[in-house]
Design a protein around this nucleic acid. Sequence first.
DNA 1: ATTTTTGCAAAAGGTTTGCATTGAC
DNA 2: GTCAATGCAAACCTTTTGCAAAAAT
Lengths: 146, 146
Amino acid sequence: MNSRELKQLFSLLSKQGIRLSLSRRAVLTVLAKARRPLSAADILKAKIIIQENVNRATVYRALSFLETTGIVELLYLAGDERLYHLNLNHHHHLICTSCQKIEAVHICNQLSVQENEIQASTGFKVQRHILEFYGLCRDCLEKNKI
Amino acid sequence: MNSRELKQLFSLLSKQGIRLSLSRRAVLTVLAKARRPLSAADILKAKIIIQENVNRATVYRALSFLETTGIVELLYLAGDERLYHLNLNHHHHLICTSCQKIEAVHICNQLSVQENEIQASTGFKVQRHILEFYGLCRDCLEKNKI
DNA sequence: ATTTTTGCAAAAGGTTTGCATTGAC
DNA sequence: GTCAATGCAAACCTTTTGCAAAAAT
């Protein structure tokens, strides 16, 4: 996401009544520039956060605030770590169990069929789902072949 | 799972070369009797664990050992908590966001199609997936209607 | 003026570790 | 006898909290 898109996002959120302090903008910026979900530790190490002297507690508070607005989503992917990412368009992840790399994938339309089946058979109304794939990325597959 | 099935499980695991100490058996027993994934805290509160004076550290070590064998799976469902459950037959969960109840569901055959598509389009070889559904259970739906 | 956000430092909570002891094969 | 597993307590790490100061509306 480039700077222009980021500004658009900020103004969109502001219009929705979401108050964006400098700290919150900094956290959003870090998440927007990242190509993968980040841990709190990752965010605390980010340039902008350090330059602007954003406190640890503030980063955590910004993350949980942004999570309640829905713009940031908390994931548990590789194990212990809580990972945060911008929740702009619903997607899933391919997590390489060898090199830990995380890629995004955008398939899930078939799940709505299953979700309807679930509601029909169990009475459970599905509101959202989490779907993550674990395996070996192309690079690691090739390396292992050698 | 009843006691007979549990014994069968123990002997099966032993035959696989998985060493089952009393502590590990106790942890497995707790997980086998539970109808839902359990946190480490849940396990530490279990009768057998207390009766047999299994130490906290031992429970954690048993869990991570059993996880490496594949018989126990670590899940992150409702949020912060790490939840453990027996990984006997692959299934997914319906997690009620209102009452936090967790039910099991056994549908996922359609996912293999998607997994093949993923490999074809991205080169990523899917080995396993995590799929969890969040929403409202039948009971909470009915209560909210009133 | 009132409410929200922040920094700081301390607390909390869950999990892991070092080491000596015990137990299994 | 050797290696693996355990108990205990302390350490560790990440996240949260209380409170006073600063910032925003």
